[in-house]
């Protein structure tokens, strides 16, 4: 039972963080980014290579984050911004193309073998009594997820964050009051890349990642984002956590084969009952 909840919260944190990355880019730059998980994968693989080359752990973590940010900003400037006037579909397709290309690049450079990001606490676990032991890496995932969510929420309360909110609410008006939408879009993509890098890194320090990882991760990320109505940060975060826990409980008490579809069906029900995301009535004014 406890093991099930912890496993659920752990994978839920990954879904939630990736969902947050998607929502941030969606809010400020208006792009549904299907390449988000691949961006995190590229950054994480750079970090893993640096670690293999003998660099200290925290330096490699820092490098991973920097690569994530740089990748986001670069993609925004080079590919996305000039397409933005055509609406969602070309942007969506561009991110699909990007995800295929990035995935293939990772396969060419690093191969398709699964890898892990060894952390000082890898393999250490804490006994919590009753014969149940919880891995430190699981706790790290959950705590970092929570801290990340709080940090992003705080950011949206800063003045840059306020400008982003203005853009999200009304692009034309935002421009009138002197908001530089291009700069904001770059910042949003940078933050998105950063969170994506954290997400995949967290998964890599606890289990394994490979070129297969992004495919399922991105769906869960989008589901989490949907549960937050693509706007609510708190809704997305809570939605991701709930998704992870539901999935574990379905696996533990119903059938491991049906995990994915039952989790998605729950989301479907949520959507039908609350067509604007499940936090609509309860959410704080965070946008």
């Amino acid at each position: 039972m406890l093991q099930t909840i912890v496993s659920g919260l752990e994978s839920g944190s990954w879904f939630a963080l990736l969902g947050l990355a998607i929502v941030v880019v969606m809010k400020a730059a208006d792009v549904p980014n299907f390449a988000m998980a691949e961006m995190g994968l590229v950054a994480t693989y750079v970090g893993i290579s640096l670690a293999a080359a003998g660099l200290p752990f925290w330096i490699t973590v820092l490098a991973t984050l920097v690569v994530g940010i740089a990748l986001g900003v670069l993609i925004d400037a080079a590919l996305m911004r000039r397409l933005s006037k055509y609406g969602h579909f070309p942007l969506l397709l561009m991110t699909i193309g990007l995800s295929l290309a990035l995935n293939a690049v990772v396969g060419l450079i690093w191969g398709h073998d699964p890898r892990s990001f060894p952390a000082p606490w890898s393999g250490v676990s804490v006994s919590v009594g009753g014969g149940v032991s919880i891995g430190v890496s699981q706790i790290v995932s959950i705590v970092v997820g929570l801290v990340g969510a709080v940090a992003i929420t705080m950011f949206f309360r800063s003045s840059t964050g306020a400008q982003m909110r203005a853009v999200a609410e009304n692009r034309a008006t935002a421009r009138l009051i002197g908001v530089n939408a291009g700069r904001l879009s770059a910042i949003a993509w940078g933050i998105g890349g950063l969170i994506a890098a954290v997400t995949v890194m967290l998964q890599a320090q606890s289990s394994l990642v490979s070129t297969i990882t992004p495919t399922s991760l991105i769906i869960y990320g989008f589901v989490a984002a949907t549960m937050g109505g693509f706007t609510s940060l708190i809704g997305t975060f809570v939605g991701g956590l709930i998704l992870g826990v539901i999935q574990q409980f379905v696996g533990a008490y119903l059938s491991t084969a049906a995990q994915f579809s039952v989790a998605l069906l729950v989301v479907f029900l949520v959507l039908v009952l609350r067509p604007d995301g499940f936090t609509k009535g309860v959410r704080l004014r965070d946008v």
Binding site: P32, I219, F222, V223, A225, T226, G229, F230, S261, L264, L265, V267, F268, L271, V272, P275, D276, G277
Partner: peptide, 10 residues
């Protein structure tokens, strides 16, 4: 996107 995710789920 709500429609997208709901139909994807089904």
């Amino acid at each position: 996107f709500f429609l997208a995710i709901a139909t994807l789920a089904l």
